[in-house]
Design a protein around this nucleic acid. Sequence first.
DNA 1: AAAATTAATCAAAAAAAATTGATTAACATG
DNA 2: CATGTTAATCAATTTTTTTTGATTAATTTT
Lengths: 107, 107
Amino acid sequence: MQKEIPLQDMQQDNEFERYESQFKALADKKRLHIMNILTQRGKTCVCDLAPLMGMTQSKLSYHLKILWDAGIIHKETKGTNSYYSINTKEINHLLSHELCCIFKPSC
Amino acid sequence: MQKEIPLQDMQQDNEFERYESQFKALADKKRLHIMNILTQRGKTCVCDLAPLMGMTQSKLSYHLKILWDAGIIHKETKGTNSYYSINTKEINHLLSHELCCIFKPSC
DNA sequence: AAAATTAATCAAAAAAAATTGATTAACATG
DNA sequence: CATGTTAATCAATTTTTTTTGATTAATTTT
């Protein structure tokens, strides 16, 4: 027998779950740094990002996957290269204008 | 011998560190729920919050401390009771207007 | 077609965060 | 002053996340 859970609570729970994963993605200095670099440089190849971050390829892939799974960066593959960039729409939806500035070259 | 680190990088590192702790605080479903309740009810006593969250006192204290350390909630003690509330200023600085709505009774 | 390049994935180990139950500290009440 | 209430802290355990190094898969180049 399953416990009755009101529909509204379930929707809210799902909403919280999505935000949880997005905040989790941002809750790390290294990943904030990645976000900042992607902002400055725009679409960037993993092969360029690795030396900029001073990170091994495998570690970088792990962190990029977390950002990508949370939907806050885009991914594009060309041949053997992968290019990542900020999902501006999602970031705008999530963060204050002030804070978005850290992830915007214009500021 | 210490490695030279440019001043700008250090400042940025500190900035990232602060945001890291704030996002970390928000990167948990239970804590988002706490934030939501504080938003709905305003200043709330721990003794009221515990049954609302269905949490033991010790666990709740742990999570409140994380939110408070990150500076996104206020704390006020009266006698043996502690009251917590949203730090609206800090939340506004951090989150988009849309998202603030989850933490604002007016929306 | 073989060799080289790039990035994702995997499994094991290490590190960090969360949970639990008990204790402590501060205050309030009879 | 003894008792009860509230919330913070602590230590031990469990769970989750991160790191590491190796392997794999896909594509490109020679």
